[in-house]
Computed example of a mutant assay.
Amino acid sequence: MASNLDTTVTVFGGSGFLGRNVVRALCKRDYRIRVAVRRPELAGHLQPLGRVGQIHAVQANVRYPASVEAAMRDSQVAINLVGILAEGRGQTFEAVQVKGAEAVAKAAAAAGAQMVHVSAIGADKDSTSGYYRAKAGGEAAVHAALPSATIIRPSLLFGPEDQFTNRFAALARFSPVLPLVGGGVNRLQPTYVADVARVVADAVDGKTKAGATYELGGPEVLTMREVMEIIQQITQRDRMLVPLPFGLAKFQSYFLQFAPGAFKLTPDQVEMLRADNVVSEAATAAGLTYAGLGITPDSMEAVAPQYLWRYRASGQFQKKSA
């Protein structure tokens, strides 16, 4: 029986938030990991996740198919995690999330390799969000080039280095009010990044259905208001949650798209908040979810306190209020 040590998995975008969790999960299963990133010299933080020589970083940019083909050489599996939340400096949704995904799929097909492509719940060719339209375009391009590819659509990811819970916890440190775009009534199903990484690794193991699209959402469906309340409870902050109409939020976003860090808000991100971000009934009925894979996902309330404590006024030493 062949060992996983004989299988090379090329992870495109392996140095990012989801990427490092996927690399960790694959290392635990003894795969050989090739991390394909634009700046391999900045991927040294991945080395402690595996044994000596198990992880190797190479240069690749999904906007340049030749580099993608080189990264896939002698690899048996391709995982595409590359994505952007905002456009800029030549990085467009079309170039990265459609053409880039297509380049990876074509390189995998040429190499006779298996492919796992991570998209997002909300991917829709008719969406008002350019991000979601590009995600749908990427899925279509991947299946056209490699019909057997497994597509994974997670809801919003949370975890120690996320840009979701950390963003709002950071805002609560400085701002007396927190805006709720559209009133905060849109529904989310936040999912723990390590759970998604486990599904990606399961797909590499061959535990998912070829050509299927899986939707991954956490154990709770929450409104944005409820998410903000949970974050405030964990960080022991008491900020006023103020509804912000979509029209006003869209207007402000034209200026805030140039703001730094947690204050940044783009017009497309406002559009993303118009729709719910939850697992569909069709995916649930087809068993293309965590439950279908026999996985019980962790909740945000169970995991987030492990890393959001640093946003409390006195950190981990903050006393609980009576």
Score class of each variant (00 low, 15 high):
150 T>I: 13
25 A>H: 08
272 M>E: 15
242 V>R: 06
239 R>A: 05
194 A>W: 00
19 G>D: 08
299 S>P: 11
84 I>R: 12
266 T>Y: 06
158 F>R: 08
44 G>D: 09
143 H>V: 10
252 Q>H: 02
254 Y>R: 15
316 Q>M: 12
275 A>H: 15
15 S>W: 01
95 A>R: 15
274 R>Y: 07
23 V>N: 01
241 L>I: 09
28 K>T: 01
205 D>K: 00
199 V>R: 00
258 F>D: 08
286 A>P: 02
257 Q>M: 13
286 A>D: 15
117 H>R: 06
100 G>E: 09
269 Q>I: 04
13 G>P: 06
240 M>I: 14
43 A>Q: 09
147 P>T: 02
138 G>F: 04
226 E>G: 07
40 P>F: 00
35 V>W: 03
72 M>V: 05
68 V>G: 08
153 R>M: 11
270 V>N: 01
217 G>I: 02
153 R>T: 02
225 R>W: 00
17 F>N: 12
289 T>S: 13
98 V>I: 15
33 I>D: 02
61 N>M: 05
54 Q>M: 12
176 P>W: 04
272 M>Q: 15
205 D>C: 08
198 R>T: 13
240 M>T: 14
306 Q>T: 15
167 R>K: 15
194 A>S: 14
294 G>R: 10
287 G>R: 01
25 A>Q: 10
193 V>P: 09
261 G>I: 01
254 Y>N: 14
204 V>Q: 03
15 S>P: 10
242 V>F: 08
91 Q>R: 08
286 A>H: 01
88 G>W: 05
258 F>S: 15
223 T>Y: 04
126 D>A: 13
105 A>W: 02
262 A>L: 05
24 R>N: 09
202 D>C: 00
20 R>T: 09
18 L>Q: 05
135 K>V: 02
218 G>M: 05
23 V>C: 13
314 S>Q: 14
228 M>I: 10
289 T>V: 03
224 M>V: 12
52 V>M: 09
224 M>S: 04
252 Q>Y: 07
113 A>P: 05
320 K>N: 12
37 V>P: 10
283 A>W: 05
92 T>Q: 07
120 A>G: 07
143 H>C: 00
44 G>Y: 03
176 P>A: 11
25 A>Y: 01
293 L>Y: 05
52 V>F: 07
120 A>C: 10
296 T>D: 13
310 R>L: 10
182 G>F: 12
11 V>H: 00
126 D>K: 13
172 A>Q: 14
12 F>K: 04
275 A>K: 13
160 P>D: 03
154 P>D: 06
23 V>Y: 00
221 V>A: 11
122 G>I: 10
10 T>Y: 01
125 K>S: 13
167 R>P: 00
182 G>E: 13
100 G>S: 01
199 V>G: 02
50 G>Q: 06
265 L>E: 02
1 M>F: 09
202 D>M: 15
